[in-house]
Design a protein around this nucleic acid. Structure first.
Lengths: 246, 246
DNA sequence: CTTGCAGGATTGTTGAACAATCTCTACGCT
DNA sequence: AGCGTAGAGATTGTTCAACAATCCTGCAAG
């Protein structure tokens, strides 16, 4: 799934030494290389970064030449991305970058709220086992976002904010929640490119992410969950407003 | 996705007449006919009904002969099922029916609880728009389960119970929750086949489904959500116990 | 018992070919 | 002009055969 490496898979190898696990992770990263998945990686980046706008059709013959893979392999890459929600198939007409609308915004944010709020609230039950080191990835994401904001690189701010939420979900150690969130955020990125004003869309949430992180660090999970709930409602409204104003 | 027809996709066609939607659904069902998806349908049944046990490898050349499709098409079918969680790919080694363990049970049930409880609780906010007719599919599932139980057909009871929960999620009109639930229940079915005692696994939940349905019909959503939460905790424990006793 | 090395089997990938379907243009009709 | 239609051209859906890359098995050597 491309970005999986940034987050714990949730599949904990109970009986093994730590170093053995890191080796296993490296092996898995090597194995990941199949032509179809490499092609999918390239296309995924093109789509999430906006090079391929929503509604665009992906021609098979053109892409076989650019990506230097056969049509069959390319179609396998298409399938992979279709399952992530980054492409849609129209039978006998081809694959397209989906055009999401306001109903998708509502649907995606409903899922986000359910999952993220539950993860944060659930941390209270497993507080003792959660070492502070696990918040470090979130810390890094916040700082990356702040630095990108200072440099006026707003798409980068958006990416860092996304990773913050992916890492947040990762705290639950649920392989399936991680996978769902990966798809969910990819679809969200698709929506961002329809919006003309990335700054006012992302800027408010840099500080709110930091505030959320501090609440987690202070183990005020109930408060954090409540804030996050409102946070996501606000974010949804902002996106909807930007959408209607396009 | 095979079973999609049984549930609203959540993609509501706002401006259309009801009959126009049913026609569109029929067209979509015709269009659905691609060789890969037909092959996937057959394999899906074999897996969920237990003909292909967990851990089994699916040989490409054998299946091309049985299913009468080319290797490429078969591999596309494999991808479809992989995405549903019914198959796993091991690079250069082939596709296998996954062997789920207790950690998967915990993971799956965590997701189920989050989603299903939220859907039920969320019904309170949209009570006026929810016509009683929308509970009819749930009613049918409960009756199907009861009839199957009287006939001692316990796998059929399990299937009907599954459909009950799929329809329950369907009440939220969320395309993504429906899709997630489809995969989730497919994986759960995979776990059921490891269990030797289908009766004691499914029987208690026939009555509990009916009780839940009556609470929904009476619009006691808060109560229903609380009951469902406990219901799913109990179900998880039952599955874990059966799993350890295997 | 472990290590290293064939040999056979299976998967990964390719390119070409043909069938099915869609899109677009041009034509004829009213 | 407006409308429906037929056909050409392009694109996708599917199959097949072949080769490359990788894995598994069994056996021999240390």
């Amino acid at each position: 799934m491309g970005d999986d490496a940034v987050v714990s898979t949730g599949e904990i190898d109970h009986g093994r030494q730590a170093w053995l696990r890191t080796v296993a992770a490296d092996v898995a990263r090597l194995d990941r290389s199949s032509s179809a998945e490499r092609a999918a990686d390239i296309l995924r980046r093109s789509i999430t970064e906006g090079a391929l706008p929503p509604g665009a059709q992906l021609s098979e013959i053109e892409l076989t030449e650019v990506l230097e893979v056969s049509r069959n392999t390319l179609r396998e890459a298409f399938r992979l991305l279709t399952h992530e929600g980054l492409l849609v198939y129209k039978l006998h007409r081809g694959v397209f970058v989906p055009e999401l609308d306001e109903r998708d915004v509502v649907d995606l944010y409903r899922l986000r709220r359910v999952l993220e709020v539950d993860v944060v609230r659930g941390l209270a039950d497993r507080d003792p086992e959660l070492p502070a080191a696990r918040l470090e990835p979130l810390q890094d994401d916040v700082e990356t976002a702040e630095a990108a904001a200072r440099a006026d690189r707003w798409p980068a701010v958006g990416t860092a904010n996304m990773r913050f939420h992916q890492h947040l979900i990762g705290l639950a150690d649920s392989a399936r929640m991680n996978a769902i969130t990966g798809r969910l955020l990819a679809e969200l990125r698709l929506l961002f490119h329809v919006i003309a004003t990335p700054q006012e869309l992302h800027e408010p949430y840099i500080a709110r992410n930091r505030a959320l992180l501090e609440l987690l660090d202070a183990r005020k999970y109930e408060q954090a969950a409540a804030d996050l709930h409102q946070y996501l409602l606000d974010s949804e409204q902002g996106l909807l407003a930007a959408f209607r104003a396009r």
